[in-house]
């Protein structure tokens, strides 16, 4: 009896030690080795759950948009009855439909699904994957502007780095192209509700609060002209050579759900006229 208990105790200890060692090994793996394992788990066990999550998100959005659709229906009814101000009504309906018609081609619509882990707002799972012809570093945008970029792509899902992720970078400029710099997540980000930083702006260029910052197109990841955020204030002036600015993000992450992932040909063709409305 006592020998059996000792044997069970040893088995328990061996199991917990094995689990801890396996977890530490997974944690210390380089991304090139870690990502295939994470991808395998996602594709086998988590993918069906993602499909469910995607359905729940779509249903929730459908409920939220019911009022907008009702308004659109009312507008259509009025239009049919009166047939007046046709162009103005048309513009209203187009704006209700969102960004997709402006982009017109070369994009995929996706759900950006949040992760449940603490600090998970820095990454999102996208409900699309390699089957939809997206690739790592594809830009992710919304009608408001830059949301993030695709980090890794699986067959049916993808991992997106939101702008709150420490590794996120976008080459940016002021709307008048007078100042160019790099936008990164501000160090105080927590839970994706933080701010952005525009760094490396030449000291002689002073940006006023409220200045719109857009992607510059340099680097080839984001096309030029996508809104990134608005300048809040000067953050620092490092040694009198360059300034950093605190930027209020254009895309609030807590409400992020439907996004557009731009394919490479669309990025190369540019999106100059889409956000400059």
């Amino acid at each position: 009896m006592a020998r059996g208990a000792r044997s069970n105790g040893r088995l328990d200890t061996a199991l917990v030690v094995a689990c801890v060692l396996a977890a530490l090994t997974l944690r210390s793996l380089a991304p090139a080795r870690r990502d295939p394992i994470a991808r395998a788990v996602r594709e086998t066990f988590v993918a069906p759950l993602l499909a469910g999550q995607s359905s729940v998100t779509r249903s929730e959005r459908a409920l939220r948009e019911a009022a907008a659709l009702r308004r659109a229906t009312d507008s259509l009814t009025r239009l049919a009855q009166g047939a007046t101000a046709l162009a103005a009504e048309n513009a209203t309906l187009r704006s209700l439909l969102g960004l997709a018609p402006q982009v017109a081609w070369g994009y995929v619509v996706a759900e950006a699904l949040p992760a449940s882990a603490p600090g998970g707002a820095a990454t999102r799972l996208l409900s699309i994957g390699a089957r939809d012809s997206i690739a790592p570093l594809s830009p992710v945008v919304t009608a408001a502007g830059v949301a993030g970029l695709v980090a890794t792509v699986d067959d049916r899902s993808a991992v997106m780095l939101t702008w709150a992720h420490p590794d996120f970078r976008v080459s940016a400029m002021s709307e008048d192209a007078g100042a160019v710099g790099i936008v990164t997540a501000h160090a105080s980000n927590r839970g994706g509700e933080g701010l952005l930083e525009l760094t490396g702006v030449p000291f002689r260029t002073l940006l006023a609060p409220g200045t719109l910052i857009v992607s510059s197109g340099l680097g080839g990841v984001f096309p030029a002209g996508v809104p990134v955020g608005k300048v809040l204030r000067v953050l620092s002036d490092e040694g009198g050579w360059v300034r950093s600015y605190l930027v209020d993000p254009a895309v609030p992450l807590p409400s992020l759900s439907g996004v557009l992932v731009l394919r490479a040909p669309r990025v190369r063709a540019g999106l100059d006229s889409v956000w400059s409305r």
Partner: peptide, 19 residues
């Protein structure tokens, strides 16, 4: 591990904590 799969840059952290 199931939870970590959704947040790959922290892979292994939940696995260790929950174990």
């Amino acid at each position: 591990v199931l939870r970590d799969a959704a947040v790959p840059d922290a892979f292994g952290a939940s696995a260790l904590a929950f174990a």
